[in-house]
Design a protein around this nucleic acid. Structure first.
Lengths: 321, 321
DNA sequence: CTGTTAGCGCCTTCAC
DNA sequence: GTGAAGGCGCTAACAG
C-alpha cells in the first residue's frame, strides 16, 4: 500500500501538498492537483483512516450496539441502519454490549446507535457526556447528545382501538406485559383511555397479567376459558401473547374470530400463525433503523440537536378480528 | 480521555515504562508496575486503538461482508460469528459490498469474512494477495490466504436420501435449482448417485427445472399434476421450491404425505408452513458463522493455513414425508 | 501556491 | 529496570 509519502515523492512535491489535494483544499495549483490526482489513481492510493483519525478527524464509522440475535426481526433494523449509512458513505460496526468499552472511549467511531437492554442508561449518558452523538432505540433518555427513536405506542394503540371499536367490539379483555415496562404502560394506558373515550366499561376481571411470552398468553387464554369469562375481543400487549391466546383457544375449540377475536402488537412474523392472520400494530422495524441512522448522521454531520422521534405502527388488519 | 502521557506523568515515569507495563513486558519493577496499573484503573485509561495500530499492530476487528438483509436466517450466521468473536475479544464490522474498498486496503481490519455474492472472486483474491486472512462462506476459492466454509451438500443429500430410501420410497422426482450453481450441482449429483447405489431408476421425465424460487416450485408441482406424473416423493434442491410444490399440491387436493411426499433442503423457517412440517436438510447457520469466525481467528492469531470446511446439514424429518 | 514543522498516541529500539 | 529518541501516516499552522 502506498502512503502519502510515496505519492509525494512520485509527484515531486511535499506530503502537505498531497494532503491538501486529497482533502480538497483550494490552495493548490491546477496542474499540480491534476498530476497528484492522477498519481493517486494510478498507484491505487488509499488514505489510511487510522492515521487520519489520529489527528482528530472522522472515522466515518458508526457503532451499533446490539446483542439480541435471537429475534430475527432485528435484521430488519440492521438493514434500515445499513441502507441509510451506505447512502452517507459511512460504515457500520456492530458491537455486542460486552465489547463496547474500547470503542466508546477513544473516538474510534463518530456516533453510536444503542439497541441493547444490557447497556445501562448510565453508560449511555456517560458516553454522551463526552460529546459522542448517540441515538437510542426503544428507550428514551433525556440528555444533550442523545436522540431517541421509539415506537409511538399511544398513536398505534389508539389507531388499533379505533378500528376495533368501529367494528362494534364492545367487551374487551387485555393481556398486559411486565407492568414496569414502558411499552406495557403506554399501550395499556391508551387502551384504557380509548375505552373511556367511547364509554366502554372495563374492570379488573378483564385484565390478565402476562410477561410478553407465548406461555403467558396461553395461561391468560386458559384463565378466560375455564372461568367462562370470554370477551368479544382480547387485546394483547404484544404478538407473542396473542399467539399464546390463539393457540389456547384453538385447542379448547373456541372459534377465532367467531367466538372471540384476538389482536396483538408488534407485527413481526409469527411462525405458528399463517402470515396476515393476526390483527396487530405493525412496528416498522426497517424504517426505525433507517430513521435512527439518519438522525445520528444529522447529529454527526450537521450538529443537529437531540430529538425524540416516535414512530407509529400501522394497524394491520387480519382474520383474527 | 487520559493518554499514556497522562499516566506517565501521574506515575512519575516515562511513557515507555507505562507502555511496557500495559503490554506485559517483563522489564519493569514490581512496585512500579503495580503503581502504574493502579493509576490506569483509577484514571480509566484505555489505550487508543487507532494509535496502536498505526504502528502496524492489530485492530482486533474483523470485517463481515454481507448485503442480503432480506433473508432473516442470515441473522443466525451473524450471531455465530459474533459469539465466536466475542470469545476472542474481537470486534465485528459489518460492511456491505459497496463500502469495503477503504477497509480491505489499509489494515483497518485484521481479517475478512465474505458472504456476499456481489463481491467477485477476483476482488477476494486480490485482497488475499496482500496477506489479508479471508474466509469465504458459501463459496470455495483456492488461494493461499483464503479459507472456505460451505455446506457439505454431498453428505447432507446422502443422509437425506438414505432415510428416504429406508422408508421405502422408490419413485423419486427432483426439482433442481439453476443448473450452474454449485449447490444445485452437488445436490443433484448426490441425489442421482444415491439412486444408482440403490438400483433405483431415474429418467429425464422425473427431473423438473426450477430456480430456487417458490414460484418455480409451484410450476414444477403443476407440471407433475397435470401430466399425471406423480412420484412417491419429490426431492427439491431447496426449501423454497418444496414449499411451492406443497402449496400447489394442496390447492389441487393432492395429499401430503398421503399421495406424495415432499422433501426440501435448507432448513430455514418457512412462514407458509407449520414449523417442523417439511422434511429437509437443516443447514446449521449459526454454527457455520461460528466456524467461519473461528477459522479466521486461527488464521489471524496462529497463522493457521487456509482450509476448506464442509459442514453437513442434519436431516430434519417432518410430516411431509 | 507550496514547503516546513510540529504533533496526534503509541510502540520499538537502544542507551544508560 | 528505566528513559530518550524516532517514527507510523496524516493533518494543521505557519512560513515563504
Amino acid at each position: 500500500m502506498p502512503t502519502i509519502k510515496d505519492i509525494a515523492r512520485a509527484a515531486q512535491v511535499s506530503v502537505a501538498t498531497v494532503s491538501n489535494v486529497i482533502n480538497g483544499k483550494p490552495n493548490v495549483g491546477v496542474e499540480t492537483r491534476e498530476r497528484i490526482l492522477a498519481l493517486c489513481k494510478q498507484m491505487h492510493y488509499q488514505p489510511n483512516i487510522l492515521a487520519r483519525n489520529l489527528k482528530g478527524g472522522r472515522t466515518n464509522t458508526v457503532m451499533f450496539v446490539f446483542s439480541d440475535f435471537q429475534r430475527s426481526f432485528y435484521l430488519r433494523v440492521i438493514h434500515g441502519i445499513n441502507d441509510c449509512l451506505i447512502e452517507n458513505h459511512i460504515s457500520m460496526m456492530i458491537c455486542p454490549h460486552t465489547t463496547i468499552g474500547q470503542f466508546m472511549k477513544n473516538g474510534f467511531v463518530d456516533g453510536i446507535i444503542v439497541l441493547d437492554k444490557n447497556i445501562s442508561d448510565q453508560q449511555i449518558m456517560e458516553a454522551a457526556s463526552r460529546d459522542m452523538p448517540i441515538v437510542t432505540m426503544d428507550r428514551v433518555l433525556d440528555a444533550p447528545h442523545i436522540s431517541c427513536v421509539v415506537t409511538d405506542n399511544h398513536a398505534s394503540m389508539h389507531a388499533l382501538m379505533e378500528q376495533l371499536v368501529q367494528r362494534n367490539y364492545r367487551r374487551f379483555h387485555f393481556v398486559g406485559g411486565p407492568v414496569h415496562t414502558a411499552d406495557h404502560m403506554e399501550r395499556y394506558e391508551t387502551f384504557r383511555k380509548e375505552l373511556d373515550a367511547h364509554g366502554i366499561p372495563f374492570s379488573q376481571t378483564q385484565y390478565f397479567q402476562g410477561d410478553y411470552s407465548l406461555a403467558s398468553g396461553v395461561r391468560a387464554g386458559k384463565l378466560m376459558a375455564v372461568s367462562d369469562n370470554l370477551p368479544e375481543v382480547v387485546v394483547c400487549a404484544n404478538d407473542n401473547m396473542a399467539v399464546g391466546v390463539i393457540q389456547c383457544f384453538r385447542e379448547m375449540g373456541i372459534g377465532i374470530p367467531g367466538q372471540v377475536a384476538v389482536a396483538g402488537f408488534d407485527g413481526d412474523p409469527q411462525p405458528q400463525l399463517a402470515p396476515g392472520f393476526l390483527t396487530t400494530a405493525n412496528i416498522p422495524r426497517y424504517e426505525m433503523g433507517y430513521i435512527a441512522a439518519e438522525t445520528l448522521v444529522g447529529m454527526i454531520q450537521r450538529k443537529d440537536a437531540a430529538i425524540v422521534r416516535k414512530i407509529p405502527a400501522a394497524v394491520q388488519w387480519g382474520e383474527s378480528t
